[in-house]
Design a protein around this nucleic acid. Structure first.
Lengths: 108, 108
DNA sequence: ATCGTTCATCGCCGATCAACGATGATGTTA
DNA sequence: TAACATCATCGTTGATCGGCGATGAACGAT
């Protein structure tokens, strides 16, 4: 009756936690729908939260690599990481015992 | 530049939030691997947390219907809701704009 | 060099969370 | 009825979170 490795469980949990907030869900959906990179200013205008708040959400999403950054001029362009989204462990994956995507932890 | 409906985003977020804790990930994985229903006592023995804590986690998981309950004697048997797990919205689903599973909110 | 723009970070606050022990509710068994 | 077993709920504590305004760092333009 052993358990899923704690470190693995924490990895999964951190991925889920990144999407455990409605604003971040909206943010991800926005970036995915728009398709092309967006600046923070554009995202702020679309989301309707303070700039600092948006920046914080973007930090969370980039840390788990759901979102990628690219500095352009003095701005920063954020875009969806289609790769990581695709390899996101759905609950079904966990349940069915599929191995962690991309060799246990690395999302390109 | 409109957004994903707020209520929809909150629905998704609540699903993700249910798995945003490593102990609950372990719990779900355990129930899924074992396959058959487990009593709270069995789960407590396997997880190694206090009974009240396990009970609380089970409440969270049943509220989003990842887990189902069935009273048996004076015990309660918890088991994976394979249905709901299968229809769990992966990040990819959100991104690709798939409709919410099971007519917007109902998991059997 | 001095603005103005763009964005990250800091500090704060109220709210929520995870964990626990203790208690209560419910049903089984003696 | 009287114990006992099983589990949910309550109340508390310390930690984390989401939001904001303010400040600061980096860069382009004047």
């Amino acid at each position: 009756m052993e358990l899923l490795e704690r470190a693995t469980a924490e990895q999964y949990a951190s991925w889920f936690r990144a999407l455990a907030d409605p604003s971040r869900v909206q943010l991800v959906e926005l970036l995915a729908r728009v398709g092309e990179p967006m600046s923070v200013g554009q995202i702020v205008a679309a989301i309707g939260l303070a700039q600092s708040t948006v920046s914080q959400h973007l930090k969370v999403l980039t840390e788990v690599r759901f979102v990628l950054v690219e500095p352009v001029g003095n701005a920063r362009h954020y875009r969806i990481n289609a790769n990581c989204i695709a390899c996101f462990p759905s609950a079904a994956d966990i349940v069915m015992g599929k191995p962690a995507p991309a060799a246990a932890g690395g999302c390109s």
